[in-house]
Write a protein that binds this DNA or RNA. Structure first.
Lengths: 346, 346
DNA sequence: ACGTCATCCGAGAGCGCTCTCCCGCCCGGG
DNA sequence: CCCGGGCGGGAGAGCGCTCTCGGATGACGT
């Protein structure tokens, strides 16, 4: 039933317009050098026939695909717990479609998948890659480097500092964390605890570093490791209450963790923010607004990050990564600012 | 820098193995009719050169792309509020990669996007489409039908009953709703309210229908329209408490809505489940387990739905939608069962 | 030993497009 | 009035692959 009618080819359009293939090609691709009356005739033929260029044939000669791979390397948990991922995708999608590029999504879970991804990237199906949520020691960056594809990372990868040519987009996790802690200080809190994020991701490490920047001399007992999940927030909060029942503030590495902490605080009869002030990170809707009380948190522009990643990559594809003629530097990473959003919890 | 080394072609492999292109092609595509010693020689040449077939060239002749479009037509809100979408994607992704198909993601928001999607599908970049979250009166199905692409829908589309050849995968929303309401009846509740989902989606309508199946004679004042968001749950719950302060149970169209209702109930000092029992729908983690109290809800296998959609589509691509030789029927839709998950809220 | 047939492999066409020539036309200058 | 230059348009090669044919090779029957 779905017997596709053979689609018209360039040839067919050319015949109908009474010109050569080359001329049709020129018109279709918007190159100049075709005089108006002729061009118009071609255009009419194109939509009379409903001509759509065959992408495969085009790619075969141009070696371009107008397709970008988006690789999400996340072992289940976090991706689904918070809408982070969906929102970045939306940003990427917008930017990509605006430039007529398609988005090829690769979800990976384990090492086998990595091999598959490596093969895929090396297979030359896409012009570039956008890569997410790397964990420290992830083999993916190396695979990608070997595939030799232009790539932009989402979040600072675990490289030895600015390794050559690695481009990424990240939020100012460290700065945001500092702001959060300073805000708590400003409220007069002094016994400020931190529930960290996953410390095998740079975002977790950076937020911890930001906390330490402001509270260098803090009691180590006030820092408990979490992993960005709500469950870890609950566990950590219990531990903290056991160790330091006199704490008067908590900075949680993200909103989910903060939500978990909030529940435990309530369970233990601590009033928020009166007894314990709580600050989260991400300003993730709908979580942040719907905790009890609504969460004071650090906002990052997630969709914007996605959009920016795509833009950086497309720019690089346009004119491949040579040193900038003005500044003499390679195309560089971008760290986006964060802002503190005050609600009721602190 | 990213000056891609020209990749080896079939020709090159053939030369190295001392055979013809055709033979290499046969070996690479696993077709039989190449004797062992030769085949082995070819295989060696392939990986000595690191040969990877050029997909564009292949598509050009086979007219296949081994790519599937996944279209998510959702105006912002819901997609990100709950992880529904991400989870279906994961299911789809697994199935697709298992069959060496790539996943091309198309996110659409408004009518302009629809036109773009129509063009894309007609453009013959993909072999089939998986389509999500249609709203009633959505023009998308018609566009897709015209593009003549094999398609599977996620969720029952708003068609006039079983329109010819429309294949979809859905949960048994109506049956699940019945189970939920019967469960409340079983607890001895009699003044059972329902906060509906978005009634421009079949899932919302079906759940309402399920509610009515069991409570045909219910006071219309006990039904308030929502839209699957937590905010609508709050609003609806307030309205219900105003209208029918004596209600003793609420069936909410999804977990997010239930979470909103729960908050309002708490605000008003109603104990759950003692005063008012609450049941949600979806069993969406982490929402359902982390409400106060944890939510009794109707579980559907979301990832399974995704996987099934992909499987159905791939099967159809394998041997195009002709009537089944045994049963004489067209490939049909699938409605997956739901199960009630008892937690504390009812 | 010769014919027959199946089997394995290679030659070559062609998928639909882009892009490099190159030719022909028109215009302006000498 | 003729010639040179420039530009619009066409011819044709070729991108890397698949697939149909037909030729060669060897097994087998007689």
């Amino acid at each position: 039933m779905t017997e596709t009618v053979p689609r018209p080819t360039l040839e067919a359009v050319a015949a109908r317009a009474g010109v050569s293939r080359a001329t049709v090609s020129r018109v279709v691709n918007g190159s100049d050098g075709v005089r108006e009356p002729l061009a118009e005739r071609v255009r009419r033929a194109v939509d009379e026939l409903g001509y759509v260029p065959n992408q495969a044939a085009r790619s075969l000669v141009t070696k371009q695909h107008d397709a970008i791979a988006v690789i999400v390397a996340e072992p289940e948990t976090r991706v689904f717990a918070d809408p982070f991922f969906a929102r970045q995708l939306r940003g990427i999608s917008k930017e990509l479609t605006a430039h007529d590029n398609q988005l090829v999504l690769l979800l990976t879970e384990d090492r086998d998948d990595h091999a598959r991804v490596g093969r895929y990237l090396a297979g030359g199906h896409v012009d570039g890659a956008l890569v997410f949520s790397l964990h420290i020691d992830d083999p993916l960056p190396e695979l990608i480097r070997r595939a030799g594809l232009p790539t932009v990372f989402g979040g600072r990868p675990d490289s030895d500092g600015g390794r050559d040519g690695v481009v990424y987009v990240d939020s100012d996790n460290r700065g945001g964390a500092r702001d959060a802690v300073r805000h708590l200080l400003g409220l007069g809190r002094r016994r400020i605890a931190h529930i960290t994020g996953a410390l095998d991701q740079t975002s977790g490490v950076d937020r911890l570093d930001g906390f330490r920047d402001v509270r260098a001399d803090t009691d180590p007992g006030l820092v408990v490791e979490g992993d960005f999940t709500a469950a870890s927030g609950e566990r950590a909060m219990r531990e903290l209450l056991g160790r330091r029942p006199d704490l008067d503030a908590v900075f949680a590495a993200n909103d989910l963790t903060a939500a978990g902490a909030l529940r435990v605080l309530r369970e233990h009869g601590r009033r928020v923010p009166d007894d314990v002030a709580v600050v989260g990170f991400d300003d993730m809707q709908p979580i942040a607004e719907q905790t009890e009380p609504p969460l004071t948190t650090v906002r990052q522009d997630i969709e914007g990050m996605g959009r920016l990643m795509a833009r950086l990559l497309l720019r690089d594809l346009d004119r491949p990564a040579t040193a900038d003629e003005d500044t003499g530097v390679m195309p560089s990473s971008v760290v986006l600012p964060t802002t503190l959003v005050r609600r009721a919890s602190a």
